[in-house]
Nucleic acid binder design. Structure first.
Length: 500
DNA sequence: CGAATGTATCCTAGGATACATTCGGTGCACTAGT
């Protein structure tokens, strides 16, 4: 029955593992928490029910680029009742979309946009079939940190009459899964959890004596092993420096960098070049990779400690999507641990500034967030948004109006909240340090234990289990091949362009 | 924490030095001024 719709809408003849159970649970009105490996058809799990349902399905997506991708892809296969609503959407288009919302089956939007009164008003007039939170681990990761609107999804869900909700992700530890359920108020959800183990990715960790040795080791690796590869570093500056350094030190390697401080167009270009095989190595911050659809990445090397085990799994999981043997190396030095720990303190609560800011709140007056944030120019507005969220949660703001409150109590609550956030982050960081240093326990076993999994014996597995990387050597560069003469190439390109 | 940048000081001039401050990752949306 469902198979017939699958064939008619998407042209597939059968479901892949997990899809049918998830779809059936959703259609039967249950909340669903699903963890499926990347590239295994996560989006189909909500797209099919959306097109079968009466009403509109809201998909909350973390990145504008992901939304645009999905919408384009669906439209290209003829499923045109699909739209994205975000800051890219032109004003006129936005109005048109909201007026005709009843005709849309699948609406992609951001957690921030989901808070807009305009959208809510429009949604109140139509039937909402399902609410889907894509990349649901972001609720737990980003929600508590710098995108508080992720924690407000739940209120919207309730305001819309709590339609069945699907939270779907590729990577979430048991703690993160519990948090997702709590934050989205999933009651006795149907859970489909698959292993995060990727048996074709072998695992290695090395601690270098210092930065110089680390750098030298990196050059060796990039020169020796088969590209393409991704190199993750701590900061934007390091991403750029690392790319320049490799380009200089390793012959025949085409590198570039990627981080959140770049122009959108540049980010897109670099990602495209990497996708098309025009680049061998990308040096990047953790901004790189979500939604990346490249199958033949042969290695992922970290030059810093990732923030927690789940992020590490997520990032190394970008290797070997084609199933071919790939490797993941955590290459660090002792001082990187200090750096990682201190980065966490960045969002520490600065009580003095907040006392001043909170003293600006007038009982009985409305608090609207943009102006609240504007008054806090001295502070990061991300923290202001989090504080705004907490003020509502703790009842200091009710119905948009400031209630009477005790300044002393409030500041101590806030102080404790941010302290706890930092402590929680530090606790998630410790296992990563341990992973980098414990050379006695199988690495796969270490990683999987955070997901309550015990790995079956693997071969090849990891450096602890006696692995060497010989089979990953690069196919030799043919030295007789004519060198790449870019001036000639450029001339040829122009000749073609001019129709000669 | 530690690297990088900013500021004060020396004193007939701008470059060296010491000390202080800031910054380090992830993204949405919106506004005001070009």
């Amino acid at each position: 029955m469902l198979e017939r719709h699958l064939q008619a809408l998407f042209g597939f003849t059968s479901f892949r593992q997990g899809q049918k159970e998830i779809i059936e649970a959703l259609i039967n009105g249950a909340d669903v928490l699903a963890m499926l490996p990347t590239g295994r058809g996560k989006s189909l799990c909500y797209q099919l029910p959306a097109f079968l349902a009466n009403g509109v399905t809201i998909v909350v997506s973390p990145l504008l680029a992901l939304m645009e991708d999905q919408v384009q892809q669906l439209k290209s296969i003829g499923l045109k009742q699909t739209a994205a609503l975000n800051s890219f959407t032109e004003k006129a288009e936005r109005r048109r979309l909201l007026r005709n919302l009843a005709r849309v089956k699948l609406l992609y939007t951001s957690p921030e946009m989901l808070q807009s009164r305009e959208l809510l008003a429009a949604l109140a007039k139509v039937k909402v079939a399902y609410i889907v939170v894509d990349e649901a681990h972001c609720v737990s990761y980003w929600g508590h940190d710098f995108r508080a609107d992720y924690l407000r999804i739940c209120d919207i869900k309730q305001a819309l009459g709590s339609p069945p909700c699907l939270a779907i992700t590729a990577t979430a530890t048991k703690e993160v899964r519990a948090d997702i359920k709590k934050q989205l108020d999933l009651r006795t959800p149907f859970e489909h959890i698959e292993s995060v183990n990727r048996s074709n990715i072998v695992l290695l960790a090395e601690e270098a004596a210092d930065q110089a040795q680390k750098q030298q080791r990196l050059v060796e690796m990039v020169a020796t092993y088969q590209a393409p590869g991704i190199i993750y570093v701590q900061s934007r500056a390091q991403a750029e420096a690392c790319s320049a350094y490799l380009a200089q030190e390793v012959k025949h390697v085409r590198t570039s960098f990627y981080h959140g401080g770049m122009e959108n167009a540049d980010r897109l270009l670099v990602q495209q070049q990497f996708m098309n095989g025009q680049l061998d190595v990308i040096c990047a911050t953790n901004a790189f990779g979500m939604g990346l659809n490249k199958t033949d990445v042969r290695y992922v090397i970290h030059l810093h400690y990732p923030l927690d085990i789940a992020s590490y799994i997520q990032e190394i999981g970008r290797a070997g999507r084609d199933g071919a043997l790939s490797f993941a190396l955590l290459l660090t030095a002792r001082e990187d641990r200090v750096q990682a720990k201190n980065l966490l303190k960045k969002n520490d609560f600065t009580a003095d500034e907040w006392v001043w800011a909170l003293s600006q709140l007038k009982v009985g007056e409305p608090l609207d967030f943009p102006s609240f944030e504007n008054r806090l120019l001295a502070m990061q507005s991300d923290q202001a948004r989090t504080v705004g969220y907490l003020l509502e949660k703790w009842g200091v703001i009710k119905g948009g109006l400031v209630q009477s409150f005790s300044m002393a109590k409030l500041t101590s609550l806030l102080h404790r909240h941010f302290k706890e956030q930092i402590a929680a982050k530090q606790n998630r960081l410790l296992p990563v340090f341990h992973y980098g240093r414990d050379d006695q326990t199988c690495r796969r076993q270490q990683l999987l234990s955070y997901f309550d999994e015990v790995p079956a014996p693997h071969n090849p597995c990891c450096d602890v289990c006696g692995l060497t990387l010989d089979s990953f050597k690069r196919t030799p560069v043919n030295v007789n091949e004519a060198p790449f003469l870019w001036e000639e190439e450029l001339k040829a390109v122009f000749a073609v362009a001019e129709g000669k």
